[in-house]
């Protein structure tokens, strides 16, 4: 499987330009079943070079970014009302459900911040600040008082804490002849939907090539059956839950009465 993948990549890369990168994923469909506790996928790629001699691996840098489906995150600033801290008005931020960045070296060593920012490899609070949407007049006033960059920065901090945004450096495993592999760990709470994996090839702090792959995360089996039932026919699902509870309660009582 792996050899086939590598061979296919080499074929694709052969017809391409001087320095090029091409990627493929071991799995483009991740199934969430009853035993799901996160997933590891391997992103395979090849860097081609038409220069004679040995492959100058050390001259290249690779940065990959895996993005989950677009998600609305609702941020509520805590407010103290008398003695109690309660979440305040809603400020929404659109962002990928997860963002995993994986690179050969820490990003600032690979390229300059403006380039990284234009490639969306780094998410700055300043850029994200434009996407903060207050959901009510009170939220608008609160946003004005707090400042959008501060809200965006709080979002980034919380997303990092929950490991929805993870940067890992030194995780690109170069094999011979420009072949490389990157292991991507999706968290247990990874959202369902369509993901993209984008890989950038840098040389001398400049972008030389990029490639894109996609994958889907979906629920399968009993997980999917319950989820679909609960969301498509909620009333029937509720009745079924009660029927299950009644039967389970009566059966358990009967079983223990006999013993």
């Amino acid at each position: 499987m792996r050899l086939l993948l590598a061979a296919a990549l080499l074929l694709v890369a052969d017809v391409a330009a001087a320095n090029d990168v091409a990627i493929a994923l071991t799995d483009d469909l991740i199934d969430i079943d009853a035993g799901f506790s996160g997933a590891k996928i391997v992103l395979f790629g090849v860097v081609t070079s038409d220069e004679p001699g040995a492959f100058p691996q050390h001259e290249f840098d690779i940065a990959a970014i895996v993005r989950g489906p677009a998600t609305t995150f609702r941020m509520r600033p805590f407010e103290q009302r008398r003695l109690i801290w309660t979440p305040g008005p809603a400020l929404d931020i659109e962002a990928p459900g997860v963002t995993l960045t994986l690179s050969t070296r820490p990003l600032p060593e690979i390229a300059d911040p403006p380039l990284l920012d234009s490639l969306m490899l780094i998410t700055s609070a300043e850029r994200l600040a434009d996407d903060v949407n207050p959901q009510s007049p009170r939220a608008r006033a609160r946003l004005a008082a707090l400042g959008a960059p501060q809200v965006a920065a709080a979002f980034l901090a919380e997303a990092r804490r929950r490991r929805l945004i993870v940067d890992s450096a030194g995780v690109v495993d170069f094999r011979k002849a420009g072949l490389f592999a990157i292991e991507v760990a999706l968290p247990p709470t990874t959202p369902i939907g369509d993901y993209t994996a984008e890989v950038f090839l840098f040389r001398n702090r400049q972008l030389v090539s990029r490639d894109l792959a996609s994958l889907s995360v979906r629920k399968v089996g009993i997980e999917s059956a319950f989820y679909e039932f609960a969301h498509r026919r909620p009333l029937a699902y509720g009745v079924a839950c009660v029927a299950f509870s009644v039967v389970a309660g009566l059966l358990a009582a009967a079983a223990f009465r006999r013993s």
């Binding site: 998600t71 609305t72 995150f73 609702r74 941020m75 509520r76 600033p77 805590f78 979440p87 929404d92 459900g97 809200v151 709080a154 979002f155 901090a157 919380e158 997303a159 804490r161 929950r162 959202p191």
Partner: peptide, 8 residues
């Protein structure tokens, strides 16, 4: 945390 975050 100064905010409560929730994915919708």
């Amino acid at each position: 945390a100064p905010f409560r975050m929730e994915a919708l």
